[in-house]
């Protein structure tokens, strides 16, 4: 199974790229000229999202460094114990939406602390794999077009994250407990 997945992920990009290029050849599209033209936009977009990324990353980094997560952790611990959720996974639940690299760091911590075959590791892996870094995605996507008023986008994203967490706890308890 792993082998099949590895082969698939290895082949999928070349197939897409070659298909696009052959189609361009068939339609007589000047592929090189168009490519260079399009690639030039990468620089403009990257520069444009810098201020948005600074704002969001400073917020989330401050929040993580302040120890606020540990304070929240103490508050919700009784609730987590009641639902038999391993305490080690609290931090990953609170970090997942804020920072992608921090989440992978916490996942590595959980593997070190509880072993790679533990229930905590499996739950943390499902949480990491089933979600995205909401705040980062929002700043990049809206920043790239200069949207400053997010309306309900972040709230919808966060509510979906919370639903995902509840689903992860529930599904994992069915599969792995």
């Amino acid at each position: 199974m792993i082998k099949f997945l590895n082969t698939l992920s290895l082949w999928i990009l070349p197939i897409i790229i070659v298909f696009i290029l052959l189609h361009a050849l068939y339609k007589k599209t000047p592929a090189y000229e168009v490519f260079v033209d399009g690639a030039g936009e990468g620089f403009k977009i990257a520069i444009k999202i810098i201020p948005y990324l600074i704002a969001i990353m400073v917020c989330t980094a401050l929040f993580r460094a302040s120890g606020a997560i540990e304070i929240i952790e103490n508050f919700i611990k009784p609730l987590f114990d009641y639902f038999k959720i391993p305490t080690e996974t609290t931090i990953i639940m609170l970090t997942r939406s804020l920072s992608g690299s921090a989440t992978l760091g916490v996942l590595a911590d959980i593997i070190n602390q509880t072993g790679v075959n533990s229930y905590a590791t499996k739950l943390a892996a499902v949480i990491t794999g089933s979600s995205e870094t909401t705040f980062y995605v929002a700043s990049v996507y809206f920043g790239s077009v200069g949207i400053k008023k997010f309306r309900h986008a972040l709230l919808a994203g966060i509510l979906a994250d919370i639903t995902g967490l509840i689903a992860a706890v529930w599904i994992c308890s069915i599969f792995f407990l």
Binding site: I17, I20, L21, H23, A24, Y26, K27, T29, A31, V34, F35, V36, D37, G38, A39, G40, E41, G42, F43, I45, A46, I49
Partner: peptide, 20 residues
Amino acid sequence: LIGIMGFWLGIVKIAQKSGL
């Protein structure tokens, strides 16, 4: 992001121009 983004935006533009 500049490099990866530039590469994919280039590829997308080809697909766009060719009608794909």
